[in-house]
Nucleic acid binder design. Sequence first.
DNA 1: AATAAATATGTAACCGGTTCCGGATAGGAG
DNA 2: CTCCTATCCGGAACCGGTTACATATTTATT
Lengths: 327, 327
Amino acid sequence: MAITIRDVAKEAGVSAATVSRVLNNSGYAHEDTRKAVLDAIHKLNYKPNEVARSLFKQKSKLIGLILPDITNPFFPALARGVEDQLREEGYRLIIGNSDEHLEQEIDYLDTFIQHNVVGIIASVNEAHSDMLKNLNIPVVLLDRTIESLPAVYADQFEGGKLAARKIVELGCKEITIIRGPVEVKPVYERFVSSFQTLRQAGVKINVFDSKLSFQGASNSVKTLFDKYPNTNGILACNDIVAVAVMNEAQRTGRRIPEDVQIIGFDDISICEIVYPGLSTIRQPAYEMGAKAAEIIIKKVKQEVLPNIHCKLPVQFVERESTRKVGD
Amino acid sequence: MAITIRDVAKEAGVSAATVSRVLNNSGYAHEDTRKAVLDAIHKLNYKPNEVARSLFKQKSKLIGLILPDITNPFFPALARGVEDQLREEGYRLIIGNSDEHLEQEIDYLDTFIQHNVVGIIASVNEAHSDMLKNLNIPVVLLDRTIESLPAVYADQFEGGKLAARKIVELGCKEITIIRGPVEVKPVYERFVSSFQTLRQAGVKINVFDSKLSFQGASNSVKTLFDKYPNTNGILACNDIVAVAVMNEAQRTGRRIPEDVQIIGFDDISICEIVYPGLSTIRQPAYEMGAKAAEIIIKKVKQEVLPNIHCKLPVQFVERESTRKVGD
DNA sequence: AATAAATATGTAACCGGTTCCGGATAGGAG
DNA sequence: CTCCTATCCGGAACCGGTTACATATTTATT
């Protein structure tokens, strides 16, 4: 059926071992032989079978990626970063959505291992981290962090602080923080940080809870302005929630940013096309993914690295949901 | 290192062949033996190595998925549909983004084959379809269609017609169709269909070009209202473009839907959280993905199917970017 | 020219499963 | 009791690569 290394060997008049050696640039091979083999490979359009290779070597060219939900626009950006970086080095991605469920995470993890993946990049909660700790292949956490494992993430404390500082600076006196689910650590951290910063500023603070998803946010947010009719500044736990809030604000006749100012978190693509453009705290999602991939690759190549916790900077992106300084 | 089938065999006091038989429920195995083997498997926490299995069987539990760009929110919905359906049956997904580039498509396709994937789901342009035609594993096209290959897609003609009919019905007299890149077949088809329908309705038609991406749409659309200041109805080639248009409309002081009505295409999640909510033509993306997965699985299981072209229905989803009938 | 070292290549075992085949045992029919 | 068949199970080959090892040839060294 498919062309095997022995077909190539026969065509080139050598043994399979020799073909393998020229293929991998290992061991010796006479220049003439090398040429003959290369010709045969080309002539037969031979592509080595990764599965056989993987079986013997006990390592594949596959990396497993576990994300909560690729349907949430923050995660595709991460995934693209990972994938693009990986492709450069010839690695491929097996992907699994966990919906934050431990059971699904374990399920994917198991099958990743069964497929001899050489590394795993995962975005899972600390409470679920046990399953990742005793693997004998490299693991890098992405977006989430756990003390004992390498991780790539954005500076949530700085982000929360930045958002809080901005909204105070911009003159808001009664600020509502929309808090996402506390189990999601980065989301919780940005909340805590905003809250502390706001308290130090001596401003009135409301806390309002919301889900993170499109559906959830849109529902959660409906009662926001009933409950806090006088808020003039809102710190949302992510951009989706922020957009839902903008919607609700406009629906209830509030002008943005004149009556309410809103700051999101993440800087997903939506921010720049909604009206008004959403000011937000940018997490460099694509770069985070790329960085995680880079670290995994280094680890796969046996480069011993310290237990890296790679914290990437966030930044405030000013658009139109906040006032210009000086207004 | 990892537990192998021979470890289990030794533990259970039988041969590897016997373990394999109970594992696969093939051939005979005495009830007592079966129990002993199962116990051993459980005791050692044995998980069979998919790679070894795949090498011998010449087929894995892997399906390859090629999408243009997972960063465009329409595609994650497809991917989730595929993945969820596949997981049910124990298949895993290798994923690759092509950015519509033939070179990358081929690259991913090659490595998918090298990994013994049993099937491929792909969203590629007709012009690139040659590479898919002579594979000896099942292929299903998703979102895009090619005459000679099975495909799952939404009814673009109906969608285009529906949007056009609605916008006319809703009283628009000068309608602008935002046309996406003509190489992308479904996008082109919905354009043609809308255009024809509009022409039959005898209404004034403008055609305006735009990219499909967030960045692209946002730029393209900036000159829309300079060029056609009197349009009162807009048919966008997708929801991203539609939202960008809404932005531009509001920025230039137009009220939606009083001054301009806008209809998008796709029904991505954003539609329901922007303000005003975006009326759109819904493609059942998740279901499309699931259906494609279902077909691939059937084909993998040797069920001979006709050259299925599975056309899923679209529907108009009314939100607030169009007027209520009767207004 | 003799010897050592470097180069070149093939044989065979191995990775961890699956399956063909054949031998052994048990149960049933005659 | 014999014979046949169904059941049970292990040995060994195989999937398509890689690599340790052995052997053969070339090149360098003195």
